[in-house]
C-alpha cells in the first residue's frame, strides 16, 4: 500500500517507484472496469442485433443511428422522458420552496418549539419511506391520486424535506444576524429579508440540496412501480421495464434504449462532476 500523502522526503527508492506503478495499474484497471461497460453499451446501440451477437467487440460496420429513431418512436420514450421531467422538476421545486421557508424560520428565528420542530423534520432523514408504501398506497387511493403524477411528486417532495431542511437550516444559522436587523431597520418585511438579503447567500446550499435530491428522484423506480399503471404516465425507469418486456430479443434496440435513458444524466455528470460528487455525498461528508 502506498503512503497516504506524497512521499517527497523518501527519494526515489525502487520500492516507491514500484508502489506508484502498482497504484497506477490498479486505478487504471478500475477506470476501465467503469468505462468499458458504458462504452460497450454505446457501441452496441449503433449495431444491428446480429452484429452484436456475432462480432460483439468490433466497431459497428455502419453506425445504425436509426436504432435511436426507432426506440424513440416505437417505445413511448418521449412520453416517459416528459413524465420524468415533470415529476422531477415539480418535486424539486416543492422541496426548495417549502424547505427554504421552513429552514428560514428554524434558522433565523428563536421561538418556543424551534428545536422540537427541527428534530421532527430530522427524524425523517434516515427513515426508509418505502416501508410505508402500504399506507401511502391506501392514502393515494383515497385521495384519488393513484395513477397521477401528483402521487409521486408529493411523496418525493415530502421525503426530500428532512435533508433539505437539515442542510439549509445549518446554512442559515451561519449567516450573521446583523443582516436581518439591518434590512429590518430599512423597512424590509420578514419575507422580503429572506428573498432579497438571505436567498442570494444560501445559493450554494440550494445547489447541494438540488443535486442531493434530483438524482434519486429522477432514478426512482419503486414508487412509480406501485402508484402508476397507465403507460402514458410512466416515468423513465418504469417505462424502461415495459420496453425491455416488449423488445426482449432485439438487443440493438435494448442497447439504444439504455443509452438514451443514461445519456441525460451522464451528459450532466461529465459537465459538472464535481458538483455531483459534492452534492450526492453531502449526507456522508461534513463541510
Amino acid at each position: 500500500m502506498t503512503p497516504p500523502t506524497g512521499a517527497a522526503g523518501e527519494g526515489r527508492r525502487p520500492g516507491v517507484v514500484a508502489a506508484a506503478a502498482l497504484a497506477q495499474t490498479l486505478l487504471a484497471a478500475n477506470a476501465l472496469l467503469v468505462l468499458l461497460p458504458i462504452g460497450f453499451m454505446v457501441l452496441s446501440s449503433l449495431k444491428a442485433t446480429r452484429e452484436i451477437f456475432q462480432r460483439p467487440f468490433a466497431l459497428p460496420v455502419v453506425p445504425r443511428w436509426q436504432n435511436y429513431a426507432e426506440v424513440w418512436g416505437a417505445a413511448h420514450f418521449a412520453v416517459y422522458f416528459r413524465n420524468s421531467l415533470i415529476v422531477t422538476v415539480a418535486s424539486m421545486a416543492l422541496i426548495l420552496v417549502t424547505g427554504t421557508l421552513a429552514a428560514y424560520a428554524l434558522g433565523r428565528y428563536r421561538f418556543r418549539g424551534n428545536d422540537l420542530i427541527f428534530l421532527f423534520f430530522l427524524s425523517g432523514i434516515m427513515v426508509p419511506i418505502r416501508l410505508a408504501i402500504i399506507p401511502l398506497f391506501i392514502m393515494m387511493r383515497d385521495l384519488r391520486l393513484l395513477d397521477t403524477v401528483w402521487s409521486l411528486i408529493l411523496v418525493y417532495a415530502a421525503s426530500g424535506l428532512p435533508s433539505a431542511i437539515f442542510i439549509l437550516t445549518g446554512f442559515f444559522r451561519t449567516l450573521p444576524p446583523e443582516l436581518d436587523n439591518a434590512a429590518r431597520i430599512d423597512g424590509a418585511g420578514e419575507l422580503g429579508i429572506l428573498i432579497t438579503v438571505l436567498l442570494p447567500l444560501v445559493r450554494p446550499a440550494l445547489a447541494i440540496v438540488t443535486v442531493y435530491n434530483i438524482i434519486p428522484i429522477w432514478n426512482d423506480f419503486f414508487f412509480p412501480l406501485v402508484f402508476i399503471h397507465q403507460d402514458r404516465l410512466k416515468t423513465l425507469p418504469l417505462g424502461l421495464t415495459v420496453f425491455f418486456g416488449e423488445f426482449q430479443t432485439n438487443w440493438a434496440l435494448l442497447f439504444a434504449g439504455l443509452t438514451l435513458a443514461a445519456a441525460p444524466v451522464l451528459a450532466l455528470y461529465v459537465v459538472m462532476s464535481q458538483q455531483f460528487i459534492k452534492g450526492l455525498t453531502a449526507g456522508a461528508i461534513k463541510g
Binding site: 421557508l101 421552513a102 427524524s123 425523517g124 419511506i129 417532495a157 415530502a158 421525503s159 424535506l161
Partner: peptide, 14 residues
C-alpha cells in the same frame, strides 16, 4: 413559513 413543509412532511412521511 413552517406550515407548508410541516404539512407535507406530516401527511406523506410521518
Amino acid at each position: 413559513f413552517l406550515a407548508p413543509a410541516l404539512l407535507l412532511f406530516s401527511a406523506f412521511v410521518a
